[in-house]
Design a protein around this nucleic acid. Sequence first.
DNA 1: AGCACGCCGACT
DNA 2: GTCGGCGTGCTC
Length: 811
Amino acid sequence: MIAKVIVDVAVNQTDRAFDYIVPVEFQEAIMPGARVTVSFGPRKVQGFVVSLDSTSDYDATKLKPLYDLIDLKPPLTKELLNLANWLKDETLSFHISVLKSMLPAAMRAKYHKTLTLSEARKSELPPGLQSYFIKSNVIESWEDWRKSASEHEKKLMMSAVKEDVVLVTNRVKTNETKKTQSVIKLAVNKEELQTAIDHLSANASKQRQVLEYLYEFISEGEWLPVSELATKTNVTRQTILQLVKKQFLIKKDIIISRDPYADRDFARSNPLPLTSEQETALMPISEMIKTGKHATFLLRGVTGSGKTEVYLQAIDRVLKQGKEAIVLVPEISLTPQMVTRFKERFGSRVAVLHSALSKGEKYDEWLKIREGKVDVAVGARSAIFAPFENLGIIIIDEEHETSYKQEETPRYHARQVAIKRGELYQCPVILGSATPSLESYARARKGVYQLISMEHRVNNVQMPEVTLIDMREELRNGNRSMFSNQLLEGIQTRLSRKEQIVLFLNRRGYATFVMCRDCGYVAQCPHCDISLTYHRTSQSIQCHYCGHSETIPGVCPECASDSIRFFGTGTQKVEEELMKLFPDCRVVRMDVDTTRRKGAHEKLLTTFGEGKADILLGTQMIAKGLDFPNITLVGVLAADSMLHLPDFRSAERTFQLLTQVSGRAGRHEKKGEVMVQTYTPDHYSILDVKQHDYLSFFEKEMVVRKQGGYPPYYYLVLIHVSEERLDKVIAITEKITSFLKRELSENTSVYGPVASAIPRIKDRYRYQCMVKYKVEPKLTHVLQEIMKTYQGEMARTSLTITIDTNPYMML
DNA sequence: AGCACGCCGACT
DNA sequence: GTCGGCGTGCTC
């Protein structure tokens, strides 16, 4: 039997299956999708079996046997193997990269090199290395050792390895860890237990306590966790271990599944009565679920229109058919509130996959899916690969979110994968959003997707009133602060009414850049073409891209003036300002800096939700999903901060973000108000937020996209080149551009070479070229050709070329 | 990616 | 004459 194996070596030359003989002992158990360890050249690597065959085209005398079979139950299903095959071509990735990205991190291979001193030839070890082998004959990590050793020592070690005095071992490991728990049971019957208690020495009071507890509450043969027994009887585990030693108790370790939500009780919720709009929305979806057909629905519902309830009830129908559901939510809105809603409705049938979980926890959640213990998976982007085998529905909430696009290879978009899986399983895919991406809405209008609209909020709660505040006007009236008078008044009123306020600012930290008022000098990173950011806590200026850090200059390095000032505003600065203006108000600040610690996100939100704070101040992450009844004012401090980014989607993002933020206000009985501070109140992406008019925005933006030749009118491909030498980057990008122009059809446009928006990062120059096309059958082939041409150079030098077939980050 | 094989310069 | 530089090619 022959196994076709994709090995874990991500380069062009090995991007194909290699044949291995399946040893007899594995023949029974081996299946496609299983991980294996194989000898590959001189070393051992991990690989995936993609198929099994009886013959091989390869020289039979050169075939090697599989070294090890890792999985009895393959982690990748047949369907996922097929999906990987499709996705590798779609994203121009190596086969192995796609396969690996379908698994939780804990199941991916780790390679470890160790050095072992040969016992027989110990005496030949050069004196310079002897200090490393005093304690043991093994150096556990070759990588760590290399970091600490001197050049001379490294040379010595190389020759010792060559002479076989020191042996190198390559280990392939996965870091699946099982969490264990110690449990005990009685080793004696109750009668014997009573005698044991009677015969305990008088000073063994703690032990007596334990045994008496067991006598009363535990039946023979019942297992009890040691930790539980310890707390219940108020003794340390040491006491219990003593009793094990005395053979009154038997102890064993069992493997338990980590459940991140184990200590939380979720009251079960029942389906809510639907509004007529929700009812109408659910109907065509149910129809597809019933008939088992694929269709992609675009569910456009205004904020607060109750999309989640539609999802929940659609899933309920799918589960009743014995099928499974995947729900994708943006990482950032994978809030406890969201998770709670799913847990409350479906209880322990839900697995949750998000980045706040540890590697081990993620692995356990994933395993529940693979073992069929759950039938709903809620998670961020990568949950789209949940290994279900009988999918009945896929839901992508906030489908316009850019976090669904992976920015590393394989550069896939979860939406594209979702629709592919939906076709395969003949099940509906629902894309939900208040502000759909232009691509999706355009497709819905063309009839490629089915459009479902929900225009009203549940309980007929009114949309909040949006006021635009012209900050140029404020400036003219002499107000140079970050708050307009109107917003200050608004805050004041809410504070006095004991209502809550959300303030939104799209930038963390304190100030953005440091400038000299006399000569205009701006502190720049020496390694990247970007200005340095002021960090107040460390009293330094830092580079956002490479981490370079300097102390704040006291005087201008250019003109020696002392008029060095900080410009721009971050959340930290706003917080300080608020404390000055409203000394009694309680502010919760939420940004990357305050939510870095595990669980911090949840804690801050709870604080605010319980009314222990008046103002929630934050970045992006507060824009989504929060739903607190007492919020009556939402303030956007700088609406146009993302409007002027060099990206054709900047208007779309501005509109989406402002709409999301506005949606946080007045979701319940109390009417909400939104105040948007802006320097460009006439821009349509801001005006249409005021009118709550998605359609109007869509029409205007479509005109702009058509003129610029951007999606959804054209497809894009971005080819990005970076290298240490500027002339080389330009030359290569130039070559690629002219190659593309030559090879692609006339209707396709190729732009470039141009410098990237940030032309240098970490001392590497960055250039790019862009392809805009409508139909281009040769495209994949031509792009593969480029990668092939430069793969050798990329391996040898610092050259990097990335190709993104559906770019979101234009920087 | 690793690692071996192979062909040209400065050293015991 | 050899040690060692890194270009080229292979891994079932």
